[in-house]
């Protein structure tokens, strides 16, 4: 229990996936322009990341390890994640069209979100148990969502600010992210596994 709590705390704040570990920078820069899309993306990521860690962990321990195919990890994981995302999309479209309308456009983007693959790889690398792995996936995705939503809030304000010509676009977003990352550095060293 203690370990689960520290995993939650570490991966939401101390080792934030976006601001400290640099996983999932592309969606972080790409969909943080509006609060609404940031929320949609966050929800989709939490959903897929929890599911992806569960499935890849099971696949690794019960298929790859017994067959001694650990070296196929990269190929296997990306295929599992890609088909999982496809499956989620199809199921969601049939079962809950409203939820699909909200999350649908974000799902294909998630396949190439490196945070999802990173979470699957790190869960195996850190030798987490099944429960720990799933909690890790959820905590990491909540950390991602927090960073994304804070960023969207800042960028909505930034729209109104006057930005010098050369800094316009990605440059100013990156510098803002840097300052946000400085703030998260305050949690550094509070807890480790």
């Amino acid at each position: 229990m203690e370990k689960l709590l520290s995993i939650i705390f570490i991966y939401i704040l101390v080792d934030n996936f976006v601001l400290q570990r640099f996983f999932g920078i592309c969606p972080f820069l790409g969909v943080s322009r509006k609060m609404e899309t940031a929320m949609g993306m966050s929800m989709a990521v939490v959903f897929v990341m929890a599911l992806a860690t569960l499935v890849t962990w099971l696949f690794y321990t019960h298929v790859l390890v017994p067959l001694r195919l650990e070296y196929l990890q990269i190929v296997a994981f990306i295929l599992v994640i890609a088909s999982l995302v496809q499956l989620v999309e199809t199921v969601l479209r049939k079962i809950s069209p409203t939820l699909y309308q909200g999350l649908g456009i974000f799902l294909p983007l998630i396949t190439t979100n490196c945070a999802v693959l990173a979470v699957a790889l790190l869960a195996v690398q850190n030798e987490f148990t099944l429960v720990e792995a799933v909690v890790f996936g959820i905590a990491a995705s909540i950390g991602f969502s927090i960073a994304l939503i804070i960023m969207a809030g800042i960028r909505e304000r930034l729209e109104l600010a006057k930005v010098p010509g050369a800094l316009q676009g990605t440059a100013v977003t990156l510098i803002t992210a840097g300052i946000l990352s400085l703030a998260f550095m305050g949690f550094r060293g509070m807890l480790s596994l």
Partner: peptide, 15 residues
């Protein structure tokens, strides 16, 4: 540090 990565890349991008 991670924060420096964002800031330096932002400035280089502006340059």
């Amino acid at each position: 540090q991670p924060a420096g990565a964002f800031i330096v890349l932002g400035l280089l991008l502006a340059l």
